[in-house]
Nucleic acid binder design. Structure first.
Lengths: 162, 162
DNA sequence: GTTGAAAATAGCACGAA
DNA sequence: TTCGTGCTATTTTCAAC
């Protein structure tokens, strides 16, 4: 009797990563420019082995990319704010386009609840912030709050391997 | 007559970066693992030159670090949510500590307005999300909304050089 | 800023567990 | 499959200019 075929076993189909991958993710999250050699030394593996693991994490979509953590304040953007945006009737798409095209908006979420959007924006001054918010106010009800401080960098949730 | 002494001119004291630095930031923001050699070819400079510019951007605090963009969904966290948190009287510090110690909270902001905190959390299910929120509810009034979708990665604001 | 040389690294083929 | 070794091309780093 032939052995029953198991479906092709994708390593991440069960959303499970092992401890080595978890360590890799944590290390690269702390410093995405670590060399594969250093990473290998860190976890006791050869550079090609970790390199292939990183590549697999990329193709599996776990690692979406490698990015910069920029301090917008050091660039002169003294103000950070969160703006909840509730477009007027039939203005949803227009407002979303406006949000996307506003360069001071560095990130936004489409959310459930009364306000469909939450935008994170930066500005060089309260005046600039107000100008940006005013452009939204032409087509939406907005609610703005200034960020006093933040957790410094977005961190990883628990990574539990088998 | 002796030349009047100009104060030591820090490049970023005026929060101004030149076009080359702006290009470097944009390129590294898109792919933080670009080699200095590639970066140099991109902007028409030698590798040591870009390397030093990147180092200066780091010491100036413009570049805070190099990080990973991880898709939490690929790790099994199906739910992302934003929770506004208003601690009960005298519970502000306790709640902030709780927020910090909750591993599903990947980021939070201290903000102005009625709700002092906004936390971004991930969860493997609605049930897990509810469990996390419940722990906050013991010491605070909360308001939760689920994220339907997001702008994919946080982008840079305008970088205008001289 | 650039160039050039030395050390470190990345990427590949191959063989072993 | 996954990892290790050995090789070569590339990159990083440091020096001198």
């Amino acid at each position: 009797m032939s052995k029953p075929k198991t479906p092709p076993r994708l390593r991440f189909e069960s959303h499970q990563i092992d401890k080595v991958d978890a360590t890799i993710l944590e290390a690269l999250d702390a410093d995405a420019r670590l060399s594969m050699a250093d990473l290998g030394r860190l976890i006791g593996m050869s550079a090609p082995a970790v390199s292939e693991r990183v590549r697999r994490l990329e193709t599996a979509g776990v690692i979406r990319g490698f990015s910069l953590d920029v301090d917008t304040r050091a660039l002169g953007y003294e103000i950070r704010a969160l703006v909840r945006i509730r477009p007027f009737p039939d203005k949803l798409h227009l407002v979303e386009k406006l949000i996307q095209e506003t360069p001071q908006v560095i990130e936004y979420d489409r959310i459930t609840g009364d306000d469909p959007f939450l935008a994170r924006l930066v500005a060089r001054s309260v005046e600039e912030m107000d100008e940006v918010v005013k452009t939204f106010c032409e087509h939406a009800v907005t609610s703005t709050c200034v960020i006093k401080s933040s957790s410094h960098t977005r961190r990883l949730p628990p990574l539990h391997g088998p």
